[in-house]
Design a protein around this nucleic acid. Structure first.
Length: 495
RNA sequence: GUCGGUGUAGUUCAAUGGUAGAACGGGGGACUCAUAAGCCUCAAACGAUGGUCCGAUUCCAUCCAUCGACACCA
């Protein structure tokens, strides 16, 4: 039997569209995907972890021109910014970073197009575009009010006829519903799955997947038609397979998309349709296997559930947070304090409160507390028996915490972390109850035994933290191993 | 408008057909190993109105509030 088939894992984030600076939503998605990637690695899986930047399309083209740059200069700058953010967030350094302007991606997207075309799912059609002379912009139906531009209700919309390529999305309704039926956990959480099922059941309409190059040249050229470019998201979605070598390196592709049982995709709720319906239809159209799981994040909002925006001034900038509180503090917050699936409010004040309560007063203080006693009374535990074993045999170690594992397998990162913080509380209580700091004077032997138990428990806590707060976890394990008190508090209280 | 979700202490979240749990924040206390941290303790909530039931926060209906979906927004 081929056991190796079971221990490969492919996870990807959505590629952020680089028309603005990275925000909390991006940070949240990167960090969560990173946690799952790290967890799987610890569980002995061979992991491919993908992220990158989505760089084509009208918005970027316009922005670049506005700032007096070429689109390439503009996207180079933003790709750099996102790469920088990944570092700041402590994302696994071996993460793959794909840009949709990469040469191999461009080739792959064109091949993908050709394959869909060859299979009969792409056709050319006249497309009517509504154009408002007042705005000098094309308008979609959903933007219109009573069939007029809301900003210029007195001007009649012009209809512009344009020839575009279309994708036969309508051909995939039954196939998608059938696929959903057979994969009852395909979209997490379930209420998002219901949403997309309802959407597909209502019926699907073909959609345009190209743009006239004369109007918008910043895209990948449609194979065999130099007058059109591939519409940005059709090109962007293909990154998930171009990143793993399709079609030039089929061995690599098979390893990550076939032998893994499919990719796991993290995305925001605004991407539900593209990832769980359109992309799946595209894969079927190209004769490729579907994704395994789509995990949908909620949004980070301002206080009271209001959308974050510069004009309201309620934006919480992840880079600024990291500067003030550190990488693991941000990781902690997006993993435990933000709901895994629902929208959650976040303000700087809320961040600070959670930081002080759970990292400074909670985890950080506990480490100082235990290690201070351990060093003062010269009590230690053998690193071969504890610290080293955790790292060497994490699978066995985590086997002892069944709920932790169950939560992570279901992408419920918050609940897994709650388990750890329960342990932190319990250990604090136990120190209070056993009072080794008093007992050491009257019953040295028993005090030392208590303290050893506490060191073991602290080791277990650090072991559990490994995928979430890797840097902190390593620090704690190191302190236990060396039997040292932290020179500086792990998380300094902020007031 | 249609469909769906949600509405629980000051705040952020749980659970449940039969005395509603927690965390943060607030009040009080005993301690001292620790980052004026930790521990113990107190106060504090089921949107509204009807209905089913011996009994509803939980089920149903209506209303109010709020969020989302209803396709070309990456």
């Amino acid at each position: 039997m081929d056991n190796t088939k079971l221990n490969k894992f492919y996870i990807t984030t959505t590629l952020p569209y680089v028309n603005s600076n990275p925000h909390m939503g991006h940070a949240l998605e990167f960090v969560r995907a990173d946690v799952i990637a790290r967890y799987k690695k610890l569980m002995g899986f061979d992991v491919f972890f993908n992220t990158g930047t989505d760089e084509h399309g009208q918005k970027i083209y316009t922005k670049a021109l506005e700032t007096g740059q070429t689109p390439q200069e503009y996207t180079d700058f933003y790709a750099g910014k996102f790469k920088e953010l990944l570092k700041l967030l402590g994302i696994s350094p071996d993460v793959n970073f794909i840009r949709t302007t990469d040469e191999n991606h461009i080739k792959s997207a064109q091949e993908f197009w050709k394959t869909c075309d060859k299979n009969g799912y792409i056709y050319k059609k006249n497309y009517q575009v509504k154009y408002c002379v007042g705005c000098e912009l094309e308008k979609s139906d959903s933007e219109l009010v009573n069939g007029k531009c809301p900003d210029h209700p007195n001007i009649e919309l012009e209809i512009i006829e344009e020839e575009n390529y279309f994708f036969k999305f309508s051909a995939f309704q039954d196939k998608l519903l059938d696929f959903y039926e057979k994969n009852p956990d395909f979209v997490i959480p379930d209420f998002r799955f219901n949403e997309i099922k309802a959407f597909v059941k209502r019926g699907l309409t073909d959609f345009s997947i190209s743009r006239l190059k004369s109007k918008m040249p910043w895209g990948i050229e449609v194979p065999g038609d130099e007058n059109q470019v591939i519409y940005v998201w059709f090109d962007a979605l293909v990154n998930y397979i171009s990143a793993i070598g399709w079609p030039s390196d089929m061995e690599k592709f098979n390893k990550w998309q076939v032998e893994t049982g499919g990719m796991v995709q993290y995305c925001g709720k605004d991407n539900l349709r593209q990832q769980s319906a359109m992309w799946q239809a595209m894969l079927i159209a190209a004769g490729l296997p579907n994704s395994k799981t789509i995990v949908i994040d909620g949004f980070v909002t301002g206080a009271g559930g209001v959308k974050m925006s510069k004009s309201i001034g309620n934006v919480v900038d992840p880079v600024e947070i990291i500067k003030d509180f550190g990488t693991d503090a941000l990781r902690y917050y997006v993993l435990r304090e933000l709901s895994p699936f629902e929208d959650t409010p976040c303000t700087k004040e809320m961040f600070k409160d959670a930081y002080n309560a759970n990292l400074a007063n909670g985890l950080g203080n506990l480490v100082s507390r235990v290690m201070k006693m351990a060093t003062n009374y010269s009590v230690s535990i053998s690193s071969e028996d504890y610290v080293d074993i955790i790292k060497k045999d994490w699978i066995k170690f985590i086997e002892l915490s069944s709920s932790y594992k169950t939560f992570l397998e279901g992408y419920n990162i918050k609940m897994a972390m709650d388990d750890i913080w329960i342990r932190i509380s319990k250990l604090n209580e136990s120190i209070q109850e056993k009072q080794p700091f008093k007992k050491i004077k009257i019953n040295k032997e028993e005090a030392e035994k208590d303290l050893k138990d506490m060191l073991i428990e602290l080791t277990i806590i650090a072991g559990h933290l490994l995928p979430f707060l890797p840097e902190t976890s390593e620090k704690i394990l190191e302190l236990i191993k060396e039997n040292k008190t932290p020179e500086k508090p792990l998380f300094l209280r902020v007031d």
